[in-house]
C-alpha cells in the first residue's frame, strides 16, 4: 500500500508537520535558535515540494516542478535572511 505515491506524500506531510512543530516546541539554547529556525524553514520547503509534486501533480511536469521548487527555495532563503537579520544586528 505504501507503493501508492499519494499515501506516501500524505505520510511525509504528517511527519514533516509534526517534526517542525516538535522542533519549535523543543528548548533550544540561545546560540542554537537560528539553527532551529533554519530547520523549520527547510521542513516548510520540503512540505511545499511534496504538495506541488504529489497533490498538485507537478511530478508529471518536470519543467514546472523544477521552476516552482527553485522559486520556493529562493523565497525560503529570503525568509531565512529576514529571520536571521536581527541576530546579525
Amino acid at each position: 500500500m505504501l507503493a501508492d505515491p499519494l499515501l506516501r506524500a500524505w505520510l511525509w506531510l504528517i511527519g514533516l508537520s509534526l517534526g517542525s512543530t516538535a522542533v519549535s516546541l523543543w528548548y533550544w539554547p540561545p546560540s542554537f535558535t537560528a539553527l532551529a529556525g533554519a530547520v523549520v524553514l527547510v521542513l516548510a520547503w520540503l512540505k511545499a515540494r511534496v504538495i506541488l509534486a504529489r497533490y498538485l501533480g507537478l511530478s508529471a511536469a518536470p519543467f514546472w516542478r523544477r521552476g516552482f521548487e527553485i522559486s520556493l527555495a529562493l523565497f525560503c532563503l529570503l525568509l531565512l535572511g529576514l529571520y536571521l537579520a536581527p541576530l546579525a544586528a
Binding site: L13, V23, A44, I51
Partner: peptide, 23 residues
Amino acid sequence: GAAFWHMVDLVWVLLFPVIYLLR
C-alpha cells in the same frame, strides 16, 4: 476544485512556520 484546495494547503504550510514556529 482540488487544485484550489491544494493551493490553500500550500499557503498554510508556508504561513504556519513563519507565524507560529519561527522564534
